[in-house]
């Protein structure tokens, strides 16, 4: 359980981090500006899966499905409707990810532990095969490219995205999502999820409909993952089957374990750590960066299961 600190300390820290992230694009050079935006997007994806891994104790190896369908949903809106509309892309992306989440949740939540993990992995392979082979609609291996929509805010008119406004837009969405997720995990609903993680038979015995809670948890998690997908689509203007592939789900699990499961902020830190590590190591090792990452990951599972954040917290408290 998270140690209760005084709310003022928490909100001060929150405000400082938010302010730092807000001024980041103004002071950072071009490359790092884009990098910070990307960390925020992957961080949102990591947070979304933390609901399952950290809070409910269900390891999902299928988050690439929701993320990928968010991207493809946004792509569908941006390609089919002229002129491309940001909010329509959001709606389509969330609908696609949400529908997939309902489907996956219905089947996979009947199972526990490793069976759940394998089933989500199998679903991610199913969606990958469908998207990879359905060339007429999804563009197959080549994926889809599309135009970036205008940033249109109700009452404020529309403007082209600049790197700064894109960053602030992403920051806004991620911050609101974080606050929502935090509220959810602290609500009675979130408490039930945590009690499922701690002792599922007992939670059932108390009288909670465990299956229903799990289905809602998977759906919520899928929706936020789809949101991250939409942001990614808006930033990068292309959709590719690789985003639906298992490798992405694996990375999300790595973010969670490295940063600290069940903390929401931890997975974001994990994503930042992972991406920085990749950036630093891949200059020398190209794609072999996953060798040191994998070794660190395995060592952390064995020796530091509470992740970087949990480890830091414990050291600070000593």
């Amino acid at each position: 359980m998270i140690a209760r600190r005084s709310p003022t300390a928490y909100w001060t820290g929150f405000a400082v981090v938010l302010a730092l992230l807000a001024i980041a694009p103004l002071v950072l050079p071009e490359f790092w500006r884009r990098f910070v935006t990307e960390i925020l997007i992957w961080g949102l994806l990591a947070m979304s899966s933390d609901i399952l891994i950290g809070y409910t104790g269900m390891v999902s190896f299928g988050h690439s499905v929701f993320f990928g369908l968010g991207i493809y949903g946004a792509a569908a809106a941006l390609l089919s409707v002229k002129p491309p509309n940001l909010w329509l892309a959001l709606l389509y992306g969330l609908t696609a990810a949400g529908t997939a989440a309902v489907f996956v949740a219905y089947f996979s939540t009947r199972l526990r532990d490793i069976y759940f993990a394998i089933t989500t992995l199998v679903f991610s392979q199913i969606f990958y095969v469908i998207i990879f082979t359905w060339t007429a609609v999804t563009g197959g291996e080549n994926g889809l490219t599309f135009a970036q929509p205008l940033l249109s805010l109700p009452g404020l008119g529309a403007a082209r995205f600049t790197p700064e406004t894109l960053h602030w837009f992403v920051l806004g969405v991620v911050t609101v999502s974080y606050l929502l997720l935090r509220r959810i995990t602290q609500s009675p609903f979130g408490m039930v999820l945590q009690s499922i993680r701690e002792n599922e038979p007992r939670t059932r015995a108390i009288g909670y409909a465990v299956e229903r809670y799990k289905i809602v948890a998977v759906m919520l998690s899928g929706l936020f993952a789809g949101l991250a997908g939409v942001l990614y689509a808006v930033q990068n203007k292309f959709a590719a089957p690789d985003f639906v592939f298992f490798a992405v789900s694996g990375e999300v699990v790595i973010f969670n374990v490295m940063g600290g499961m069940g903390t929401l902020v931890g997975p974001v830190a994990g994503a930042a750590f992972f991406l920085l590590l990749r950036e630093g190591v891949s200059r020398y090792f190209t794609e072999y960066y996953l060798i040191p990452v994998g070794i660190i990951f395995t060592a952390m599972v064995i020796f530091m299961p509470q992740g970087l954040l949990g480890f830091a917290k414990r050291r600070l408290n000593e």
Binding site: V59, I114, V257, I291, G294, I295, T298, V301, I302
Partner: peptide, 14 residues
Amino acid sequence: PLTTILATFGISLV
């Protein structure tokens, strides 16, 4: 048992 799936996943990556 979930930690073993995570650990072997890391091994598979390496």
